[in-house]
Design a protein around this nucleic acid. Structure first.
Lengths: 247, 247
DNA sequence: CGCTATCTTGACTTTATTCAAGGCTTGTGG
DNA sequence: CCACAAGCCTTGAATAAAGTCAAGATAGCG
């Protein structure tokens, strides 16, 4: 019933895995392939929502400007994630590329029509959105009660798990606790898609505090910091333990 | 097409306003009326999700315990709000009554079946969930960057607007920015459904800090604090301004 | 090779927490 | 109806955590 991801225009593997042929054809016709460079804005807060999209490769941020003018990042988007806010009258947040990205973009009005015509797709989007809500609330707990050390450790841990996850397991179908019950974490290395400043905006800290906490984790031997954006997780369980350091 | 709210068993006015007769009959048959006292738990984190519900009167909290054992409140539920997590394998959060509450409770499995049979209901739930996600992300910004003063002021402001809102305008149908664009806020008085400790858990602060900030707002003449839980908003625009005091 | 960005580190300040009393409310029983 | 107890709220002083300001160090890039 489900077609191989590489055959379809949509190329959202998590979505493809559970859609029938007719939905895939519909989405494939509707979508337009698009590339954005690091820093480019796909969606701007306040604008009427013109597009929805599926992220195929790269990482994006969902962000907003605070009244004080600093940026607050309220979520990250990885390959396979759905982007956009159907049924809204205005975008609440900016959606900006953190790396070069590839997208499959749909006009919003058309996408809404497809949802109305294909119950299965609307159902899938509902599941994703519910999972996303759970994730946002887990973040909320971290932002409310975790120390600076736990925020940074938790961020590095989450990012490691997410980047290690094959695309197909992502998003709605992986369930709400896909990020936590990732089995025994193994030593790994990756490049951060975010600058220190962006990490600070994500964690509600300052650049200096993020930097100090990273140094602290390196001094403890838990991580390595090769080059500018490189991260090596030497001791995954110690990192996970540090992430639990709540008030 | 839509029936009067008081006629149906569901008694969720926001939902009723946009459902057809057959959906209402279905929901009414499925739902069971239930009352909970302040402090009672409807849903427990970790348990398999047995029920969904609509809150008819009172206020509830969505909460979770941090690794350190303190409680973190990640959301509040008001009359008209949908409760529960369809399609999940385990509840992520506790749902607990902050006041005495009235609910219309549905077995989750049956509720999911109704969603599958009635596309309009699933569509409505999707809209609500998307709006809830936006709201959670707005909170996230506040938790990340707002000062203690702004958190308390923002909380009192939000609570005032929400309690002033008639039930019918609530939830999904009111749109994502229903809390902010509430027109010119007018002087008003209400009783807080939360203790100082619960406000602290909601805002990621301590009891003492919440208390001090309230005292500060009273000293500035912006609010009054009659009795234990009473709040009088003397100067709504000053309160809203104080809520914008970000880092 | 030098320039610019970004990142790190240090000293000091601000903010919120912690610890410790003390004061109101509320409800209960004499 | 008043006294008393229990819980909740407020206030103050000391402490700890993160932020701010200010140099330097590194890394990338032309």
């Amino acid at each position: 019933m489900a077609r191989s991801c590489d055959e379809c225009g949509v190329r959202d593997r998590a979505l493809c895995a559970s859609l029938g042929d007719d939905e895939l054809v519909t989405l494939g016709r509707l979508g337009v392939q698009r590339r954005l460079a690091r820093g480019d804005t796909l969606i701007r807060a306040g604008d009427p929502p013109l597009v929805c999209a599926n992220l195929q490769s790269g990482v994006m941020k969902i962000a907003t400007l605070t009244p004080a003018g600093t940026e607050s990042i309220v979520g990250l988007l990885y390959p396979g994630d759905f982007i956009g806010r159907p049924f809204a009258t205005a975008n609440e947040h900016d959606v900006i590329a953190l790396t070069d990205v590839e997208l499959c973009v749909f006009p919003r009005a058309m996408f809404e029509r497809v949802l109305a015509d294909h119950q299965r797709m609307e159902h899938l989007l509902l599941q994703r959105t519910l999972a996303e809500l759970d994730r946002a609330r887990r973040w909320l707990t971290r932002m409310g009660r975790a120390t600076a050390a736990a925020r940074v450790a938790g961020f590095l841990d989450d990012m490691g798990r997410r980047l290690a996850m094959p695309d197909c397991q992502r998003s709605a179908l992986a369930g709400p606790d896909s990020q936590r019950s990732g089995g025994v974490a193994r030593s790994m290395a990756y490049d951060l898609p975010l600058s220190r400043g962006e990490i600070a905006d994500l964690l509600g800290l300052t650049i200096e505090t993020v930097s100090r906490q990273m140094t602290r984790l390196r001094a403890a031997g838990i991580i390595g910091l090769p080059g500018g954006r490189g991260i090596v997780i030497n001791d995954p369980s110690a990192l996970a333990a540090a992430a639990e350091e709540y008030v």
